[in-house]
Design a protein around this nucleic acid. Structure first.
Length: 273
DNA sequence: GCCCAGGAGATGT
DNA sequence: ACATCTCATGGG
């Protein structure tokens, strides 16, 4: 099935950009379980193709293919660092992931590095997710709510085991994950940070990658550096940096953040100059 | 051994 | 409201 012929860079968006930790690459194809079904994506001369998985519209939405990224470049074209970052990665898109998956993956991301997060997510899915022909689906809230803490720690999630179980129980107990996309961003963030293991940074990642809240602006170590070095912001706390960045960049601040983050983290642009 | 990684929570001021 | 410490784990 032809998904589209957009500029989408599969490896950059699904693996290297560290907004999702679930996709695997095998023989030039990219695989994951979405909505309980395995899907494999690849590009040929015609564009992006999908084998298996959900319907075309759901995939296009997941991959954010219906957004005009040319308009994003125009919106921030007057900011030199933003223009550079967008120009460097014309194939980067900000995914629309299920909120539950983003929530658990970014709880695991706290004080952790990308390869290890990916390994933990794979181990979690292999142990608690449904087998879908070689690939494993993401664990359900019920599966993690009923997980044994020692068994989770055996997967090397460390002190985050307690966060996973307790947050999963909150979700099973009626936490309104699916309503977050319809709330004002600040209200949705306030609700998320009430979950164990979720601070402001993780909340912003869940909002941006899992709730279509494009103004949510996660500030990790790299974004904190680039905000001081490229934008000249002078704040001590990440919280204050995030507030200023959102005020500066507006309703699509989070989309822009993803380009800036990748430019800073991968060294595509030098920091400190 | 140290420092770092898409930080959060508890405690003290 | 802000600063400091601790929390597992693995790689450089």
């Amino acid at each position: 099935m032809l998904v589209g012929d957009e500029a989408l860079d599969l490896r950059l968006t699904l693996i290297d950009s560290a907004q999702c930790f679930r996709w695997v690459e095998k023989d030039g194809r990219f695989g994951c379980v979405l909505d309980g079904r395995a899907v494999w994506l690849h590009r040929d001369d015609d564009g992006i193709h999908a084998e298996g998985g959900a319907d075309r519209e759901a995939l296009r939405h997941y991959l954010d293919l219906d957004r005009d990224y040319g308009a994003l470049a125009a919106e921030y074209g007057h900011i030199p660092a933003a223009r550079r970052a967008i120009g460097l990665y014309p194939g980067l898109r900000v995914l629309n992931q299920p909120a539950w998956e983003a929530l658990i993956c970014f709880i695991l991301s706290a004080n952790n590095n990308v390869p290890r997060i990916r390994g933990l997510v794979a181990a979690l899915s292999a142990r608690y997710g449904e087998d879908c022909g070689g690939l494993h689906g993401f664990p359900t809230p019920e599966a993690l709510a009923n997980a044994d803490e020692a068994a989770l720690r055996a997967l090397k999630v460390g002190y985050r085991a307690r966060y996973l179980i307790d947050t999963a129980r909150r979700v099973c107990d009626g936490f309104p994950l699916d309503d977050l996309r319809r709330m004002p961003c600040d209200e949705a963030r306030a609700r998320l940070v009430s979950l164990p293991g979720v601070g402001e940074k993780v909340a912003d990642c869940v909002l941006l990658f899992g709730c279509e809240q494009t103004s949510a602006f996660p500030v990790d170590v790299w974004v904190a550096r680039l905000l001081t070095d490229w934008f000249g912001l002078e704040c001590r706390s990440r919280s204050a940096l995030g507030r200023q960045a959102r005020a500066l960049l507006g309703e699509h601040a989070g989309l822009m953040q993803q380009f800036l983050f990748h430019a800073a983290r991968t060294g595509g642009v030098e920091l400190g100059g």
